[in-house]
Design a protein around this nucleic acid. Structure first.
Length: 637
RNA sequence: GCCCACAUAGCUCAGGGGCAGAGCACUUCCUUGGUAAGGAAGAGGUCCCCGGUUCAAAUCCGGGUGUGGGCUCCA
């Protein structure tokens, strides 16, 4: 007679046997229909599994977060069943739920094609219609291994070996398909519904290791209801519309071409945007006590050997052999150059902290498959800086860097910023004792500043641990941009010293920091975040002055000249076209402010102002319009 | 680097073993029009590159390069 406590605190007693399905049914028909699993004393379980003893339970419905994840996991199983029916020689491996959907990795000689997706999806719908029962079975480990071997599922056998000994080995059977799985699952395939869609195929390494064989991965999306599926597909279309590669062309900002993979050709407007970011950053970091420098892009191999890059970063470096037989490397980072500047000037602890900044163009040889528009390139400009300081100053300087970074992100409208703490990687330079010290210093700064963070084990730079600053854009995507790294290795390797208060030589600590990370990438993120509708202070062309008749040409030129004299980026459009045509064209290319000038405006010395995204116009005197814009630009500074 | 797909006019794309196509953009002409495409005419091509098959290849096959979606890696 189990006593079942429900989330509202009420208690129900059942006859000697009960289950999630029975409980849901006893509460209500619609709950029973929407139930996908049950939480028993906190543990997620199958609806059909018997509950033997007293427990606190909560029915999990398809609309809940847990329920949706379970649906997606079931969709992966139905996908695997469909594939096994269609191509029985295929081996199944793993198939988890992921954000917005699911995937399943298959081992198969012949890869899946996009056309196969439709065939598989149709079979998946059949399986949902068949409404097969999904039955949980607990197996003996060695029997399970033997079973999977006998049906040619070597990967499954391998997975069982990695299941901890104290965990039961459970299999789920649906129709003729049987799969190793922790569960829980739906009671039957019909409950999955049809709000799913296979989206793409790709390769994926077994266990995520590039040394292993490549499997065929099929991705899909799955939702509780059709409406949500449609909404998601619509969101994907919207995301495509804000793709920086498309907008970069429409807005005439930049282009790429075959001869320079992973390198940007900046057009006048794009370069203007680029310079606006630099102006803003320069102003902020100068105020924060940084001094700007510039260091060589090409330096002799010996320097890179001394810094440790030649050993730890060689695969990512472009090199150049000269006719005299010397080897130079194009800088992949600015730090060794900055140490050289430090060594030329600083001798006293009194000069520390010493903060050097550079908008440094770096080149890294990235694997061809990693390149992606401006988000991942081979040639990029870092807003890089290095703070040389004493060990005692690490905490204060780190806090100052965190505040600078968060403040600058706010200036761009990014309020939602997360911090990750990345510690020592496998390939690294320096003693573990030094790493202990560096990691502790960063953690202390985070705690003192009262900042929340998550741990990112093994992801530090080869010379030191780091904080990664991740910002979330308007459509919920995360981008790692800023970074702060504590380096107790490189200054010593490159022979940097200062004289301390004690009259002895000491090796300075070096903090590496970047805020945009890469200017190229940050601009890509900004474009997508704003869907191309850049805020006024950043727009490469802020105002376009359009004439309605050629009678207005002179006045339009005069207005544009006044805007330019006031420091605004303004252009005229005097073409022999209708005003609707001009408005459309400049709206498409995302000009934030349009001034239209016809006979009426010429006579009254006014302009008809139209803002991007609005269909309304406002007739203002030139002075009023100018004031309004200047105020808006100033507010962002 | 690995798996899959794709590459045709400036852009978006159709086509397909036998003369290279559309829309938009561009040029010229007409139009001076009041807020998201006015009309007409014209020009524009190494069908990504290199090989192969074929009487004939932009089309089929092989290799390369680039791009896209993933994997691995990362700012």
């Amino acid at each position: 007679m189990p006593r079942i406590t429900l989330p509202d605190g009420s208690v129900r007693e059942y006859d000697d046997r009960t289950s999630g399905a029975i409980i849901a049914e006893s509460i209500g028909k619609s709950l029973a229909r929407d139930a996908v699993a049950i939480r028993v004393d906190g543990e997620l379980r199958d609806l059909t599994r018997e509950i033997e003893s007293d427990a606190s339970v909560a029915i999990v419905t398809r609309d809940s977060e847990d329920g949706l994840e379970l649906l997606r996991h079931d969709a992966a199983h139905v996908l695997a069943e469909a594939v096994k029916e269609l191509w029985p020689e295929t081996q199944v491996t793993i198939g988890p739920a992921i954000e917005n959907g699911f995937y399943y990795d298959f081992a198969r000689e012949e890869p899946f094609t996009e056309d196969d997706l439709e065939v598989i999806e149709a079979r998946m719908r059949d399986i949902v219609d068949r409404n097969e029962s999904i039955v949980r079975e607990v197996w003996d480990r060695s029997e399970a291994v033997e079973f999977f071997r006998s049906i040619g599922e070597e990967y499954k056998a391998e997975i069982i070996a990695s299941i901890p000994n104290d965990e039961p080995v459970t299999l789920y059977r649906q129709g003729d398909f049987i799969d190793l799985c922790r569960g829980p699952h739906l009671p039957e395939t019909g409950r999955l519904g049809k709000a799913f869609k296979l989206t793409h195929v790709s390769g994926a390494y077994w266990r995520g290791d590039s040394a292993n064989e490549m499997l065929q991965r099929v991705y899909g999306t799955a939702w509780a209801h059709d409406k949500q599926l449609r909404k998601y597909l619509h969101m994907l279309e919207e995301a495509e519309k804000r793709d920086h590669r498309r907008l970069g062309r429409v807005m005439d900002l930049f282009h790429f071409q075959e001869e320079a993979p992973g390198a940007v050709f900046w057009h006048p407007k794009g370069w203007n945007l680029f310079q606006s970011l630099i102006d803003f950053m320069r102003q902020q970091q100068n105020a924060a006590g940084y001094q700007e420098i510039n260091t060589p892009e090409l330096m002799n191999r010996s320097l890179w050997e001394a810094s440790g890059h030649w050993d730890s970063f060689a695969d990512n470096m472009f090199t150049s052999e000269t006719v005299d037989g010397r080897t130079y490397a194009i800088k992949p980072m600015n730090c060794p150059g900055h140490v050289q500047v430090f060594k030329q000037g600083i001798t006293s602890y009194r000069d520390l902290p010493y903060r050097l900044a550079e908008f440094g163009k770096c080149h890294r040889y990235e694997p061809s498959g990693a390149l992606h528009g401006m988000m991942r390139v081979r040639a990029f400009t870092q807003d890089d800086a290095h703070v040389f300081c004493t060990p005692d100053q690490i905490t204060d300087e780190s806090i100052a860097v965190c505040n600078l970074i968060l403040g600058i992100y706010r200036g761009f409208g990014f309020e939602d910023v997360r911090i990750k703490f990345a510690d020592r990687p496998e390939v690294r330079v320096g003693d573990d004792a030094v790493w202990d010290q560096a990691e502790a210093a960063l953690l202390k700064a985070l705690e003192t500043a009262g900042l929340d963070y998550t741990h990112n084990p093994g992801e530090g730079a080869f010379y030191g641990p780091k904080l990664e600053f991740v910002l979330r854009d308007a459509i919920g995507r995360d981008w790692q941009c800023g970074t702060l790294q504590v380096d107790l290795n490189m200054p010593g390797r490159l022979g940097a010293t200062y004289i301390g208060e004690d009259g002895e030589k000491h090796i300075p600590v070096m903090l590496h920091r970047a805020i945009f990370g890469s200017l190229e990438r940050f601009i890509g993120i900004l474009i997508e975040h704003h869907a191309g509708n850049l805020p006024l202070w950043l727009a490469p062309v802020q105002v376009k002055v359009l004439t309605i008749t050629s009678e207005a040409d002179d006045f339009a030129e005069e207005v544009a000249a006044r805007l330019q004299a006031a420091g605004l980026r303004a252009e005229t459009d005097l073409r022999n076209e209708k005003i609707a045509y001009k408005v459309r064209e400049h709206s498409v290319s995302k000009i934030p402010v349009l001034f239209a000038i016809g006979q009426r405006e010429v006579e009254t010395g006014s302009v008809a102002v139209r803002r991007l995204g609005s269909k309304k116009q406002q007739v203002l005197s030139v002075d009023e319009a100018l004031d309004e814009l200047l105020t808006e630009v100033r507010e962002h500074r």
